[in-house]
Design a protein around this nucleic acid. Structure first.
Lengths: 302, 302
DNA sequence: ATTAACAATGAAATTTATTCATAATGGAAT
DNA sequence: ATTCCATTATGAATAAATTTCATTGTTAAT
């Protein structure tokens, strides 16, 4: 059975005669007749019968007509959806986040994004944190917020904004009075990080390891908010972008962000997408939106 | 979009490679490649992409795959159903009844019929009472219980059983003491009939009109049970087959059935079906079942 | 490097669908 | 009845599509 058969039955039912149905389908009456004859032979059922000079659907015929209604509706909807997809008007955007902090940051304007693209299904996940680029290639993820651009074929990294990692300490902490810190200061401190491989932690890769320093203690924390609470409570220090300390956050006034002297902790946040998708309207919009947001902020702080 | 495209996507998802999918569909890898390429051109979407030497479905591709799942399931089920239909193992049997009494009678063995044909959808209706044969031709009705066979092309009447119309009167009625009645007796009586055209009432067509008798009064009643109640209460008489007075019926012992002398009121009940359907197993079964039922009854009353 | 596994592609071959022309049918009008 | 007229069915010719074949291109593994 093919879709054409279903189309013929439905057109016949709607228009009342084969000639009219053929007209609707831009075919000849003969074509429809041959097609249904074939189908009848294959299925071993009679679908319509001449009754006077009208065609009357048999039981089997009107049963198939019901099926046709449902199947063709589904298929039509799918074709419309795909057309929208191809025009970039709709889509299903799954954005991965690479680090916990990104998640917090993205949340600050997710609401605006959702409003700007009402037809876009947006999902934010940290599920593919450890193989995110592969997940993009495999269409499990459509975009990734990351500060670690790779050079991977088929994936494009668009810079979003620059930031610097700082050492967060409690206001009450002895280091808090300093203008800046040096790696050596950490040898007595409890260092807090996310529970991921040390190779993925700038604290180790850029600060501790190159200077052969081991911290007083190393503890891992799952959630950014909890990590900040612990720092505020004087239970440790951590290396994070300054903006993780949100505007209205409880721990905001109890934390100090100190630059680390002698080490380049300037980073850039990127949006990684498949090359094919990087010009999609809703991706461009996202990148542009973030650029504008940071341009404004930069002007304000001037 | 055609079903083949959906089949290809689904086979690819299931089997992991085009070659395997082609094997499943009994086609060559080349055919599938060409087909999807065509569809992609028509829809303006990319459905899969080579990734290494594997194919990976794009977002659009896996969306279509979901559609495919649903559509092909529906279509497969329909094809199976039609195949069963063509073998007469299943069906949708809408049985019309011509006269109210038939309805009562059919009910006496409907339960057995339902049990014997569990896959058959059975519906009994009196909706097409006045154009029932046309309704059969138009597949609105599949069978009709009627005592008035016509000679209509394409419709076959199979005799079910013979019966005789009798005059039902109350036990307390003056006529009840007689062995039989003659038409003249009705000139003083209140005659009860169903509310249909006089031409369709044997009471008028066979008894009153040929003998130029007008009854004392003519009242119409919708329901057989109510008509019998009224007769039992002495509010009138009616002409019905004896068997409408059911076994456990309340009015049973208060009614007398009198033959009408000098008029042939013997009739035969028929099952009318489209000629094409008359050999369907579940139709044959129905006819045979009724025959056996009446054969047994005839033996019992010997 | 070589090979094996897979997909893409162009052209030829094949199959399928469509049309054209016409027959057949049934209803309506004369 | 006979003659339209409107419709569907059908066979053969034509057109279009699908499929295959043969080959190229790519990638991963040995």
């Amino acid at each position: 059975m093919e879709l054409i058969h279903l189309k013929i039955l439905l057109a016949l039912q709607r228009r009342g005669s084969l000639i009219a149905a053929a007209d609707e389908l831009c075919l000849t009456q003969s074509a429809l007749s041959h097609q249904i004859k074939n189908l009848e032979k294959k299925l071993g059922v009679v679908l319509w019968r001449k009754h006077g000079r009208k065609l009357v659907l048999t039981q089997a015929g009107s049963y198939l007509c019901d099926i046709a209604e449902s199947v063709l509706t589904t298929v039509d909807a799918a074709e419309r959806h795909l057309r929208l997809l191809s025009e970039g008007k709709t889509g299903n955007l799954i954005i991965g986040v690479d680090c916990h902090a990104c998640y917090e940051w993205f949340n600050t304007f997710l609401f605006q994004y959702l409003q700007a693209w009402p037809c876009l299904e947006i999902e934010v996940t940290s599920k593919y944190r450890f193989n995110a680029l592969e997940a993009i290639s495999h269409y499990q993820l459509d975009a990734l917020m990351t500060a670690d651009p790779g050079d991977i074929a088929g994936i494009r990294f668009q810079p979003l904004f620059d930031f610097e990692l700082k050492l967060l300490v409690a206001k009450s902490h002895p280091l808090a009075v300093k203008e800046s810190v040096v790696p050596k200061h950490l040898s007595e401190e409890t260092v807090l990080t996310y529970p991921v491989d040390e190779q993925r932690l700038d604290m180790f890769q850029k600060v501790l390891v190159p200077n052969s320093i081991s911290p007083g203690m190393h503890k891992t924390v799952e959630e950014t908010a909890i990590m900040l609470q612990m720092v505020a409570a004087g239970r440790g220090v951590c290396l994070l972008p300054e903006w993780v300390v949100g505007e209205g956050m409880h721990s905001q006034e109890q934390l100090v962000a100190l630059p680390v002297t002698g080490i380049d902790l300037k980073k850039t946040m990127y949006l990684a997408t498949r090359e094919e998708d990087s010009e999609l309207e809703y991706i461009r919009w996202l990148v542009d939106f973030v650029h504008k947001k940071y341009l404004r902020k930069a002007r304000n702080t001037d």
